[in-house]
Simulated scan of single mutants.
Amino acid sequence: MTPIRERALEAATELVGTQGIRALTHSRVDAHAGLPRGSTSNHFRTRAALLSGVTQWIAEQETRDLGAVLTRQFDDLEGFIDVFSAAIELLTGPFAVRTRARYALFLEAASDPELFAPLHAQREGMAAWSRSLLVSLGAKHPDTALRAFMAFGDGIVLHRLSVDPDAPVRESVAVAVRGCLAA
């Protein structure tokens, strides 16, 4: 990836994550990235192409950054709670702006299957990983547990991003995981 393209995608993600989807214009991305006027449009001719590029970029960055956390080995329920808590803390801490951008793009892409594809694929991967772990931890009804677990994950991330950035994570994750396993 060229440095200009990468700078444009980083700036676009930051704009969406801090100012919302309406802030995503080629000229604003150029200005925010400190690029010459027209640089972003050389890589992304249309706004749809820019949205698609940002969506793919976010999915790639999250997969890379969370991969190290989510592939940690653990032997028991407490280890799983630790791993999942660490992922939530990353998404709502150091990567909060990018996570806000992802949520904004989820809403924008809801009616555009092509735009939604990278985020959907990433989410499906997370769901498959989570389901297999819930099964290995003894979930009595893994599909029901997975839906509740994913909803909980979205809820705590959204809560920390919008209402209480310092909300405790591990205690809430422990309650949710134990509840999902028991249901």
Rank of each mutant, 00 (worst) to 15 (best):
L50C: 14
N42T: 12
N42Q: 15
I88D: 04
F106Y: 02
D76V: 04
F84Y: 05
V97T: 12
Q73P: 11
T40P: 13
A86K: 07
D82H: 04
R45H: 15
T55H: 08
F44L: 09
E89G: 11
V97S: 08
L91T: 03
P94Y: 05
V83K: 08
A48L: 06
Q56T: 12
V97W: 01
A87N: 11
S111I: 06
E89W: 01
P113W: 02
D75M: 04
I81M: 03
L107E: 12
R47C: 03
A86E: 14
G67K: 07
V54D: 08
S111T: 14
G93Q: 04
E114N: 03
N42W: 06
Y103K: 12
E78V: 05
T71H: 07
E114G: 04
F84R: 15
E89L: 09
R100C: 04
L50T: 13
I58E: 06
E89F: 02
T40G: 14
D65S: 07
R45N: 12
A109C: 07
I81C: 08
V54W: 02
T55S: 15
F80D: 11
S85P: 13
T46H: 07
A101V: 04
A96C: 09
V69A: 02
P94I: 08
A101W: 01
G93F: 00
V54P: 06
T92S: 07
E114A: 05
R45S: 15
A109F: 01
D76E: 10
L51K: 09
A59N: 13
G79P: 11
E108L: 02
V97P: 03
E89P: 10
F106L: 13
R72L: 13
R100K: 14
I58Y: 02
